[in-house]
Nucleic acid binder design. Structure first.
Lengths: 299, 299
DNA sequence: AAGTCGTGGTCGATATTTGCACCATATCCC
DNA sequence: GGGATATGGTGCAAATATCGACCACGACTT
């Protein structure tokens, strides 16, 4: 009696074409049990039996035959609808200017932008590495990825998964400097520059280890660590994917940094900006496990 | 880009017509939050912005306007489909013969059959009160409702919610015979007939209470109890709905009896039988709370 | 006759979705 | 200015749907 679930029409079509619950389930990429349950749902809501279950698969009833044409009409209209949507959205054109911290842009954001421009070829995306909010406030950028968010700044934003940092070193380095689970004579790689006194080491698992070398750029530092020159702290979505680096055994996350995708309130209504922002958030959320470091090391 | 959820088209239409998330939600009988979430889902899966959220409700974008026609086409096809299903299924005709215990048929099953025949006017339903399986085995009945099920009998069936029995008496009777939560001088109503020695009383909360009168028919007994002549045990789906009866305070369920809807394996493929069986199971499941006595007394 | 493969159906642990109670905001009205 | 009443959005507990491992049955093969 209740209205039929429109999704069940897809299932009906798959059942009709597959002539078996299991084949239909495979085509629909579901388990055969949920397909079976949806079939009974549809049958009860229509008040009619669509298939008689027999020894080798399903046999369509008269009712199923008659409904088929209507179901295919629904399907065609849906195909039509999605096609107009995806074809028309390429009308969207114009610039989208993103600003984000350097490492983030190189490692994570660029592939996403590549995907985005493939889908919306007439949108011109530009990326500018920076840590400040000025771009956004001054109107030289539309979207900013930042790890600080002060609501007073009159910006709107969505919070993304927290970026987690771990301690990394090369496998060989750990083999040479670890003895029964303890570090012996291990060293950090210096970050130089503004943090010349290396205060950050105080918050690590090895606050008394010595500091050697000086690599302000984080990617340089990662390469140095991979080459066995010492320990370093990296976002795990980056460190985990580098082949020669491993998390230093027995250590916990060094820090968790919140990340926001921010934009100016005036731009919230822009279809172009909104589309990009939504795309970005979806893509980043897909990699939540990598970002928060939930999973162990996988190669 | 994942395929759009077909149900989201209904939501899109409701949104377009309601011009606000909350109004659409009301028409769809959902909460505004899930409508909002589904809108975002649809927009991301289409890769397009359908509405700009503004101060007073939603404003349809160009894209929404263009998609509207297609969405309405889908809707019309769906309406068409359900209409053919509902009109064609009245082609189903022939007899369905049900057998079930007397009380069940009168109190619970008859209204359902009335509903069923309204929906399928050409199906002739006949009900025969009986406790035995013979009808089913001999082929004089198609469907049996029974509280015993021996798989050896070569029958197929579905289990329904357990029927729960409670102890009932009239409000006045309890007022007269109860003192600080204890029964004083209360009596059972005799069932007579085969159970002349009233062994069933042993399993009740008042095994030593006296027995008066003699009413073999359960509906007579219920009426006698409602008139204040004593206590009796009734299925709670029946006792709870009688205006003058209440569950005797402080008592637990006296018994729980499983119920099966059974049919002969040969009949399983019959569209007519299957439709009826499915209808019955759905309707009875709706009243699960009343049958198992989960809820307190409501009038 | 026994084993294997395919069919649909069933049940319980797990994921996902939903609804609810909030929040921030904007408009209108007094 | 200060409610009062709209709007859409969000975090969390509860309801719901999903999966996957089973079962029973029938049709083949061995």
């Amino acid at each position: 009696m209740s209205e039929p679930d429109w999704n069940d029409i897809r299932i009906f079509l798959a059942l009709f074409r597959g002539r078996s619950v299991r084949r239909a389930a495979e085509n629909l990429d579901m388990s055969h049990s949920t397909v079976s349950r949806h079939l009974t749902d549809l049958e009860t809501s229509l008040g009619a039996v669509l298939f008689t279950r027999s020894r080798d698969g399903l046999l369509a009833t008269d009712m199923a035959e008659r409904i088929l044409a209507k179901a295919e009409a629904v399907e065609n209209d849906m195909i039509d609808l999605t096609r107009t949507a995806v074809s028309l959205d390429s009308v969207m054109s114009g610039p989208v200017r993103v600003t984000c911290p350097p490492l983030l842009s190189q490692i994570m954001i660029m592939p996403m932008i590549a995907e985005f421009t493939k889908r919306y070829p007439d949108i011109e995306v530009s990326v500018h590495s920076s840590y400040s909010f000025e771009d956004l406030m001054r109107g030289t950028a539309d979207i900013a990825l930042r790890s600080q968010f002060d609501p007073n700044d009159n910006l709107v934003g969505r919070r993304l998964p927290d970026f987690t940092d771990y301690t990394y070193a090369s496998k060989d380095y750990i083999g040479d400097h670890w003895f029964e689970g303890d570090a012996t004579n291990a060293n950090w790689l210096g970050r130089g520059g503004s943090d010349a006194h290396n205060k950050w080491i105080k918050q690590t698992p090895f606050p008394n280890a010595s500091v050697r070398h000086d690599f302000p750029d984080m990617m340089d530092q990662a390469q140095a660590a991979a080459a066995g020159m010492g320990m370093t702290v990296l976002p795990c979505y980056y460190g985990d994917q580098l082949p020669n680096l491993v998390r230093v055994p027995g250590t916990q996350p060094v820090s968790k940094r919140p990340i926001w995708a921010l934009t100016h309130p005036d731009l919230r209504t822009s279809v172009r900006i909104k589309t990009f922002l939504r795309f970005l958030v979806t893509e980043i959320s897909k990699q939540e496990a990598q970002i928060t470091g939930e999973l162990g090391v996988d190669t």
